[in-house]
Design a binder for these strands. Sequence first.
DNA 1: TTTTGATCATGC
DNA 2: GCATGATCAAAA
Length: 224
Amino acid sequence: MFLSLTPPANEIELLYRAKKLAGLSLGELAVHANIVTPNNLKRDKGWIGLLLEKYLGASAGNKPEQDFATIGIELKTIPVDNNGRSLETTFVCTAPLTGKTGITWEVSYVRYKLARVLWIPVEGQREIPVAQRHIGTPILWSPSAQEALQLQCDWEELMDLIVLGNVKHITAKYGKVLQLRPKAANSLVLTTAIGKLGEPIRTMPLGFYLKKNFTNQLLARNFY
DNA sequence: TTTTGATCATGC
DNA sequence: GCATGATCAAAA
């Protein structure tokens, strides 16, 4: 039932597949895909994303590419409340902490990932059992001129911190719509970054996340 | 209640 | 270790 084993040929087909899933519950999808629905997402944080990938025919895997690379589209599921507002920030990609002196927004991975995104809202309130959470109407989105400018502005500020050796001072408070936060198995994980004197240092891996005010805007803008 | 920092699973 | 998929939960 609606399972797609091959990648969509174009974005029309992808959107068509996604629209067919709107209104269905995660439990129904899991049953038909022969997958067990977890009681909560504590130990299955990416479960919804992987389930939807399976239904839409994503290229899948852990390759550093868009989910639908051939048609240039990234898939993002986003947990929302009953007013359609996002409950969580959205992970974009890990942040490069070395070797990026001189990199520009135009060729950045954040821009590439967010160039075209299929957003699929899913009920995310913890009071609702995972199996009973419903899938919402998909939104095929590209940043507006204003959104692109907001992203670029934050990205440049954050990359400056990294490139100029201030990675140790980074907190989630930097950035208006984009932020840097830890992205690792736990707080003991270390990776290499650039120190104040340009020397290699060990620090926590970071990822770029879209703040809720940003995703809320795009969800609201496309609600009608 | 909201935000920031921490964490979980999986594949190679 | 780093990429994929994110949400949890302590702190503010």
